[in-house]
């Protein structure tokens, strides 16, 4: 008894998701396309293009299934400059979070802009996607955006 007692209160504990989650018919295509370095949006009946691909139009509630390629260039709609990145940020040198309206889209996409100084950025400036070398079919397959030369 005394020999096993020391192990009585021990149990492995691993915090994890024990299931796989599907990203659905629209977003799964968006993520697959990202793996091929393509960005997809969805087009409404009124020809409004949502990018990244949205499953529905939040104003009209229309279901969106018509996929269309946008980008990879676009313009800055707004941006904020992170002066001192925190541990949780994906980039560890000063960078921008930005809302980027991709070419061919009517809505903006949140992403990061790197490889520039704060003073280089302005609303309306053109940026383009820089791709990850190790795609995982997730939003981070776009590593970040950079200013167009």
């Amino acid at each position: 008894m005394s020999e096993t007692k020391t192990n009585l209160l021990e149990a492995p504990f691993e915090l994890s998701y024990k299931y796989k989650r599907s990203s659905g018919p629209v977003m799964s295509k968006f993520f697959e396309a990202l793996g091929d370095k393509k960005i997809l949006g969805t087009k409404s009946k009124a020809q409004k293009v949502f990018a990244p691909a949205a499953e529905f139009d939040p104003q009209t509630r229309e279901t969106l299934t018509d996929l269309t390629e946008v980008g990879p260039g676009g313009v800055i709609e707004s941006w904020s400059w992170v002066h001192q990145p925190s541990d949780h940020h994906l980039l560890q040198i000063p960078f921008a979070f930005a809302l980027i309206k991709l070419d061919g889209a009517d809505t903006a996409m949140l992403h990061m802009i790197s490889g520039c100084q704060e003073s280089d950025l302005s609303i309306g400036a053109r940026v383009t996607a820089t791709w990850s070398d190790t795609p995982t079919e997730s939003i981070t397959d776009i590593k970040h955006f950079t200013l167009e030369l």
Binding site: S23, S78, S86, F97, L110, I139
Partner: peptide, 29 residues
Amino acid sequence: DSIISLQMDPYYISPLWPDRVSLAALQAR
């Protein structure tokens, strides 16, 4: 900052870890 990132869209936004101040700053600008 990192905890608030988790309240966002888990597909398109949370994986980018935007902090609450940077998001607010987008509207401020």
